[in-house]
C-alpha cells in the first residue's frame, strides 16, 4: 500500500504546483498590476506597524532601533498609573457619548422630516444645502466656529449681550467644550449622515402605504406603523457600528480647537499622543499610548461588526 500511495501523493503535489504555476503565469499581468499597490502598503502601512515595537523600548533618535533598550510594558504601566489616563479616557468617551445621544438621532429625524416633504424641488434644495458643511475642511469649520464664539465680535456673544448677558469666553472654559465640539460635529455631519436613512426610506415598498390608506391610516399612523419599523434595521446597524467607533473622536478638529486652559475636558487619548510624542518628543511613551488606543478601537470595531453581522448579516466588511 505504501509503495502505491507514495507516487500518487507526489503526482498530486506536482499537479498542484503545476496548476499554481500555470494560474500565476496566466494572471501575470494582474500580479504585475498589484506591485505598486502592494509596495505602497508594505512601505507605508506594514513598515509603521513593524516600528510599533518602540512602544516596548526606550527609543531615542540617536541610538536608533537597534541600540535602544527593551523595557517591556513600562510605558504602558506609566500611562495607566499616570495622571492623564483617566482624564483622556473619560474625555474620549464623554465626547462620544455626547455625539451618540445628540448626534445620532439627528440625521434620522432629518431624514424622516425630509421624507414627508412632497415638493421635489424643495426636497432637493434642502438636501443639497445640508450636505455642504461635510465637504468643507476642518480648518475652515474650526475657524468659523472660533469666529462665531469670539468674546469681542462673535455672533453668539452679540446675541447674549443683546439679551443683557455678559460675554462668555467659550473656548476658555472647560465646561463648554464638549457641547461646542458636539454641535460643531453635528453641523458638519447631520445632513450627510441622513443620506443613508433617506435611501432606506426610499426603499420602502409603496404598496404598504397604499394598503394602509385603504385601511384608513393617516400620515401619522403610516409613519408609526410602516416607516419606522421599515428603517429600524438600518438604525440598529448604524447604532452598533457607531458604538464601535467610540474611541475614534475627531482629534484633528480638537487639536485646532483646544488650548491648555480647557485640556481638562478637551484632551482626548489621540491628542495626548500627538502632544507627548510630536511636541514633547517622548516617542516610546506616546507610541505605547497610541498602541493602547489602536488596540481598544480595533476590539470595539471588531466586536460591533460581529454583533451587526450576527443580527443582520451586514457589517463593514
Amino acid at each position: 500500500m505504501q509503495i502505491v500511495n507514495k507516487p500518487r501523493f507526489i503526482t498530486k503535489n506536482k499537479r498542484y504546483c503545476r496548476n499554481l504555476f500555470n494560474d500565476i503565469s496566466r494572471d501575470r499581468y494582474l500580479y504585475l498590476l498589484m506591485i505598486p499597490f502592494i509596495a505602497y502598503y508594505v512601505l507605508f502601512y506594514w513598515r509603521p506597524i513593524w516600528s510599533i515595537r518602540i512602544a516596548f523600548m526606550d527609543y531615542s533618535l540617536y541610538k536608533g532601533f537597534k541600540g535602544s533598550p527593551w523595557v517591556g510594558f513600562e510605558h504602558f504601566i506609566a500611562f495607566f498609573k499616570g495622571p492623564f489616563f483617566w482624564r483622556t479616557l473619560t474625555n474620549t468617551f464623554m465626547l462620544s457619548i455626547y455625539s451618540l445621544i445628540i448626534g445620532f438621532p439627528a440625521p434620522i429625524i432629518l431624514a424622516l422630516l425630509i421624507n414627508e416633504v412632497r415638493n421635489k424641488k424643495f426636497k432637493k434644495i434642502t438636501q443639497t444645502l445640508t450636505y455642504i458643511p461635510h465637504f468643507v475642511s476642518t480648518v475652515v469649520v474650526v475657524g468659523i466656529v472660533m469666529s462665531l464664539l469670539s468674546p469681542t465680535s462673535g455672533l453668539i456673544n452679540m446675541i447674549i449681550k443683546f439679551f443683557g448677558g455678559n460675554e462668555i469666553y467659550f473656548l476658555a472654559e472647560p465646561r463648554y467644550f464638549r457641547m461646542i465640539y458636539t454641535l460643531m460635529h453635528m453641523w458638519q455631519s447631520t445632513g450627510y449622515s441622513a443620506i443613508i436613512y433617506i435611501a432606506a426610506l426610499a426603499g420602502i415598498d409603496q404598496e404598504l402605504y397604499e394598503a394602509a390608506v385603504i385601511d384608513g391610516a393617516g400620515r401619522w399612523k403610516q409613519t408609526l406603523h410602516i416607516t419606522i419599523p421599515c428603517i429600524l434595521p438600518t438604525v440598529v446597524i448604524m447604532l452598533i457600528l457607531k458604538l464601535g467607533t467610540v474611541m475614534n473622536v475627531g482629534y484633528e478638529a480638537i487639536i485646532l480647537l483646544y488650548n491648555p486652559i480647557i485640556y481638562e475636558t478637551a484632551d482626548v487619548v489621540s491628542t495626548y499622543v500627538y502632544r507627548s510624542g510630536l511636541q514633547e518628543g517622548s516617542y516610546s511613551f506616546s507610541a505605547a499610548v497610541g498602541l493602547f488606543d489602536s488596540v481598544v478601537s480595533f476590539l470595539l470595531v471588531f466586536f460591533s461588526n460581529k454583533v451587526s453581522r450576527w443580527l443582520s448579516g451586514i457589517s463593514l466588511w
Binding site: 509603521p48 516600528s51 489621540s270 499622543v273 500627538y274 516617542y283 507610541a287 478601537s297
Partner: peptide, 11 residues
Amino acid sequence: FQAGIIPTYLN
C-alpha cells in the same frame, strides 16, 4: 488597525 501617529511619523 491603525499604526498610530508616532510609528507613521517615524516611518
